[in-house]
Simulated assay, not measured.
Amino acid sequence: MHEAFGEQFQIQPGYLNTASTGVPPLRVGRRVASAVEDWYTAAHPNASFDAEVDAARAAFATLVGADPDRVAIGSAVSSLIGMVAAGVPDGTRVLTAAEEFGSVVRPFAVHADRGVTITEVDLEALPERVADHDLVTVSVTQSRDGRTVDLAALRAAAERTGARVLLDVSQAAGWQPLSLGWADWLVGVSHKWLLSTNGACWLACSERGLAEARPSAASWYAADDRWNNLYGASAALHPGARGLDTSPIWHAHLGAAEALPWLVSLDLASVRAHCVGLADLLLERLDLAPRDSAIVALDLPDGAGSLAEQGIAASVRSGRVRLSFHLYNTEEDVDRVVRALRS
């Protein structure tokens, strides 16, 4: 058992794979497990968690600096971004980072038949290329190597040109402070740095972004007065962001309702300092330059093999070993990696 930032975690030393799957606080895991038991023992087999969906929705908005009344919920990044992509005009010119995570850009790519085009550029060059495009879609922190887009430069470029901006915060929210209400759309998932069950996702919209997204999924959960409008074609969708809601995976949002308000209560500047401090300490001990990110990507001859033999959990992305540090990691994890590599 390990305690960090006021919560207990049942986690083994050497777990450095939060960028794939975060480990929830023990309290969060037990709450979800209890609800699952209620289901399979038929204690509450048809339980819904509307209050928890809304609590997680509000907490996500706080974490990213958005308006909670303009947050839609769903279960996958690609499906929520798909509603943004469905609403862009024919011929929209989309800008993204080279080797961006597929779910962030492919929902636009499938509209090529409408003349939607995709331009991929180096992440560092992205702000200077905004002027030639109508919409930018990019992860705040890149999944494959932990690099972060220059948000100030991107915002300035978008404000000069009027370009729309969609930011994926899936690899950023939860370990660093964010204030991104200026973006048109913000999307993020529950099961990485937000330490919740897989299956919850959010789309925060600006006023302009909400007006331009298209509710192409038109879920029953998006209906105005949803529980009294379950049937038929004529039920009106909610006039706000909830009109973009898709059917929730109940237990995922239940877990998020436990984890996200706790994350909101933390000093995220301290969380960031902890995570980045450990990542940069590892780089220093490997005689590499600091990268100011909680994610480290290393070129290792045998991939993650030597690390796995020493009980270290990591991922391989684009041929590089990806290590990710969160609030439950310690200097002991850094030491384990260094020993494994030197052995």
Rank of each mutant, 00 (worst) to 15 (best):
D122I: 00
G87P: 07
E99Y: 13
F60T: 03
V53G: 06
F60R: 08
L95D: 01
V130W: 10
V121D: 02
L123V: 00
F108W: 06
T137F: 06
A51K: 14
P127C: 06
L126P: 09
V136L: 11
T62I: 02
R114E: 11
R129V: 01
A56V: 00
L63A: 03
A58H: 15
T119E: 11
A112D: 14
D132I: 01
A59G: 07
F101A: 07
V110T: 14
A61E: 02
V104D: 11
I118W: 10
S79H: 12
S48E: 07
V110L: 12
D113Q: 11
A51L: 15
G65F: 01
E52Q: 15
I81Q: 11
D134S: 05
L80C: 02
I81S: 04
A98P: 05
T119P: 10
H111F: 11
D69Y: 08
E52M: 12
T117F: 11
V88P: 01
E100K: 08
R114P: 10
P68R: 02
P89F: 04
V105A: 13
D134W: 07
V105W: 13
A76H: 11
D90V: 00
V116P: 12
F108T: 03
E124S: 14
I73V: 10
A97F: 00
L80S: 08
V94N: 08
R106N: 12
A51Y: 13
D67W: 09
D134H: 04
E99V: 07
V104H: 10
H133R: 04
D54K: 08
A86V: 02
V64G: 09
E99L: 11
F108P: 09
S79P: 08
S103C: 12
T62P: 09
F108Q: 06
L95T: 00
I73W: 05
G115Q: 04
S103E: 09
G74E: 00
P68A: 01
T96A: 08
R57M: 00
L123Q: 11
S75D: 13
A98Q: 09
A98K: 13
A72M: 07
A58R: 14
R70N: 02
D69E: 14
L135E: 04
G87T: 01
H133V: 00
G65M: 03
S48Q: 05
G82Y: 08
P107T: 03
D90L: 01
I73A: 04
V110M: 13
D69R: 13
V104L: 15
V138A: 12
E124Q: 14
S79N: 13
A72S: 03
A55V: 08
D132P: 07
S103I: 02
D90F: 02
G87Y: 05
T62C: 12
L135H: 12
L126K: 04
A85W: 09
A76S: 15
I118M: 15
R57H: 14
G102T: 14
R70F: 03
V105I: 14
P127G: 01
A66C: 10
D50R: 15
